[in-house]
Nucleic acid binder design. Structure first.
Lengths: 176, 176
DNA sequence: AATTTTTTATTCAAGTTTGAATACCGTGTC
DNA sequence: GACACGGTATTCAAACTTGAATAAAAAATT
C-alpha cells in the first residue's frame, strides 16, 4: 500500500473530511517535504478506497463536495500499514543520489562549484527548517509533528556531511 | 524530468545498450536502494525518449531486442538535468516519515517496541551497507559508486539518531 | 541430438500520479 | 441586486509506474 493511501486513512482517523480538508491537513503535516501527494492523487485515493470499503461516503453532492469517513475495515488496514512502516525499512528515495551517481560526468570545475553551492543551500535549508520548528503549533498541529522537521534536519545534515567529505576527496584526487 | 529518465540517459552515455543491459547497469549502480525504477518503467522510458528524440533506436528486432543510443539532444538534456539535481534541493521521499507522523496512534507499548526494533534494524542495515562498500568494484563499478552507499549509511545513521532521541523523549513523556 | 532448465529480454493490462484547468461558493464593492 | 474577485473544491486527460506474465535464447542435462 502506498504512502498516499496510508496518509489519507490516517488523516481521517479523527472524523470525516472532504477532499480539500484532507489536502489542507496534509499540508499542515508538511507532507510536501517528504511524500509527493498531488491533488489529484488525494481525490483518486479517497474515491478508490471508498469503493474498496476502507472509507465511506458520509455526504455527497453538497456543492460538489464529498465527505469521506473511515470504516472499521479502514482503521484495521491503517493500523496494519502503520506497523509495517515502523517495522520494515523501506528505501528512502533521494534525488540527490542521481546527482552523485553521475558526479564523474561533470568537469572538475563544475563539480567543485556544484558541491560548494550544494553545501551552502543545505546550510540554509537546515537553518530555515530549524526556524520552522514550533511554527505549526499555532495552526493546531500536534507537538510530535515537529519531529518530522527534526528528522528532515538530520537528513539534510547527513547530506551536508557527505558533500563536505566528498569535497575533500575531490581536492585530494580520490574522487570521482 | 523524473529520476528514471535521467538515470536512463546517464546509463547510455558510454554507448548503446538494450533494455535488459540498461536494467543490469542500474542494478550495478544500486538504484534499487534510492530510486524505484521498475522493469516496465525502463522500457517505457527508453521507448518514450526515443520517440522524443533524446534517444535513437540503433538496432531493432534482433530477437526482440531494441538497442538504444543517446542523441546529442539527449546528452544536452542529461547535462541540464544533472546540473539541476546538483543545484536544486529536491525533497527526499522517506516512508519512515509516514510512520513517525502517526506515532501518536500507537499505544505506548507498541511505540516503544517499534522504536527498539527499528533501532536494531537500522544498526544492522548500517553494518551490512558498510560491508558492501567496495564489493561492486569486482563487477566493474567505478569507485565513486561507493559514495551512494556512504550517503545511504549517513541517512540510516540520521534516522537512527532520530529514533534514539525520540525513544528518550517518549520515556520522559515529551512525546508523542 | 533431443529435451529440460535457466537466463536473457520484453510486454502489457491495470493501477497510480500529475497539476493545470475547471467549477463552485462566499465575500466585498458598487 | 449585480458583478468581480479570491478562496474553496474537484476534475480529468495525459503520463508514468508496476511486476507478473510471456517470449526467446542460451546453457545444462539426459
Amino acid at each position: 500500500m502506498s504512502s498516499t493511501r496510508v496518509l489519507l486513512l490516517g488523516v481521517l482517523l479523527d472524523g470525516p473530511l472532504h477532499g480539500y480538508e484532507v489536502r489542507r491537513r496534509l499540508e499542515l503535516m508538511g507532507t510536501q517535504h517528504w511524500a509527493n501527494v498531488a491533488y489529484g492523487s488525494i481525490y483518486h485515493g479517497l474515491a478508490k478506497m471508498a469503493d474498496e470499503g476502507l472509507l465511506e461516503r458520509v455526504e455527497e453532492g453538497k456543492g460538489g463536495k464529498t465527505v469521506y469517513g473511515i470504516t472499521e475495515i479502514g482503521r484495521a488496514e491503517f493500523a496494519r500499514h502503520l506497523m509495517s512502516h515502523w517495522w520494515e525499512i523501506k528505501p528512502i528515495v533521494d534525488p540527490f543520489q542521481v546527482a552523485l551517481t553521475f558526479m564523474d560526468r561533470l568537469s572538475q570545475a563544475d563539480l567543485t562549484s556544484a558541491m560548494e553551492a550544494r553545501a551552502a543551500q543545505l546550510r540554509f535549508s537546515i537553518s530555515m527548517t530549524e526556524r520552522a520548528i514550533g511554527g505549526k503549533r499555532a495552526f493546531g498541529a500536534p507537538r510530535h509533528i515537529d519531529e518530522c522537521l527534526r528528522l528532515n534536519i538530520l537528513q539534510l545534515q547527513a547530506q551536508l556531511t557527505w558533500v563536505e567529505e566528498a569535497m575533500e576527496k575531490v581536492r585530494n584526487g580520490e574522487l570521482p
